[in-house]
């Protein structure tokens, strides 16, 4: 497919993306005039790997660091420390033209197609823009590709001459997808790409994304708060809470045997109506909002809202441990809780 394939390390031939201990901190003012600077711990030591051609889902509440993680992978948010190995090459420290060269392999589809398109430029020009900026192909080749891309996302060729306001929300999201596809990327981040759309349109876009993935062997990072969509759409899922991954595993494992109390809370909110849901809600649905990510205290991030917290949780930050080759949990009480969870399911 590209030169990058040959550059990939032989040890992990199918891992397109390998994120190691990624940290993104934003300064958030000082504590008093001479005090030390506070930091928002947006992403605090996140590691995961994404296999080529699969979909990696990230779920969590707003403020959990899902989007920041994705933006850091795309080098659109400043990385404080950690590695982002893309196709065998650490891109965390790249700058200048090597970084620009890398950009064509990484693209993004944003949540709100109304603000992601320039209202003053024609649709065709906007799809062509990444090709122009990255210097891909000659002029006529670029026009050609724009036409092909429009057809691929299910829009007529005349759409190229229209302005964004002449499209509906779903069509605009199709334009955003066409634009992301233009430089033929390997990885596309879908940051809540269907959340702003109506349910009927959401299904159209999800089907389109899946078809493109099959045809082009695309790799997706799919950020969403809708567990129903994530369960169906993703191969691997990570649950984030306040800058940390609290549970990660294959979609099958994670949703058949979730282990972290926070995952249970999300499931309790999304479960289909019925007595099981009522029982889940009563036991697991956490109340209120997550605490502030500015200078978090030591210990587990979830401790204030966790129904199963013990003293140890307040003092020691749990590490993300494997309970199964494809399932990781960061919880001190995972093994104690497993039994009560099983009771509910049965």
């Amino acid at each position: 497919m590209s030169v990058l394939d040959t550059a990939a390390s032989p040890a992990a031939p199918d891992h397109l993306l390998d994120v190691n201990d990624l940290v993104v901190h934003f300064p958030a003012g000082r504590q008093g005039p001479f005090g030390k600077t506070s930091f928002v711990h947006a992403v605090d030591g996140v590691s995961f790997r994404v296999r080529r051609g699969t979909t990696f889902g990230i779920v969590g509440e707003s403020g959990s660091g899902k989007s920041t993680t994705a933006l850091a992978v795309l080098r659109l948010a400043p990385i404080t420390s950690g590695q982002v190995v893309f196709a065998g090459r650490d891109i965390a420290d790249l700058s200048g033209s090597p970084l620009r060269e890398m950009r064509k392999h990484l693209q993004i589809v944003f949540q709100d197609p109304f603000s992601a398109l320039n209202p003053r430029r024609r649709a065709g020009d906007q799809i062509r823009e990444p090709l122009d900026l990255l210097g891909i192909g000659s002029g006529s080749e670029r026009d050609d590709r724009v036409r092909k891309l429009l057809a691929e996302v299910g829009l007529p060729p005349q759409a190229a001459d229209l302005f964004p306001h002449q499209f509906s929300g779903g069509q605009r999201q199709r334009l955003c997808i066409a634009r992301a596809l233009a430089p033929e990327p390997d990885l596309i981040v879908c940051d809540e790409a269907v959340s702003a759309l109506d349910v009927a349109i959401q299904a159209q876009i999800l089907n389109l994304l899946k078809r493109l993935q099959r045809e082009r062997r695309l790799t997706y990072m799919f950020i969403s708060h809708d567990l129903g969509v994530v369960q169906q759409f993703c191969d691997e899922v990570a649950v984030m809470y306040l800058g940390k991954i609290v549970e990660q595993g294959s979609a099958a494992k994670l949703f058949t045997a979730p282990c972290h109390p926070y995952t249970w809370s999300l499931i309790a909110a999304a479960a289909p109506p019925g007595p099981v849901r009522d029982a889940l809600k009563q036991r697991h649905l956490v109340k209120g909002d997550p605490p502030s990510p500015v200078d978090p205290p030591p210990g587990c991030r979830f401790v204030q809202r966790c129904p199963a917290a013990v003293d140890r949780c307040r003092q020691q930050l749990p590490s993300l441990d494997a309970i199964d080759p494809s399932h990781y949990v960061a919880c001190h009480r995972a093994s104690d809780l497993a039994e009560t969870f099983i009771q509910i399911r049965s």
């Binding site: 349910v199 089907n207 129903g228 169906q232």
Partner: peptide, 27 residues
Amino acid sequence: GLLNCVPHFTLGRAPKPWVDLGEIPGM
């Protein structure tokens, strides 16, 4: 169509391999 196009969360069951969601074409 409205009922079919939403992927509903199922608990305790491994997700089935992807089948295209029932979509309502057009707008």
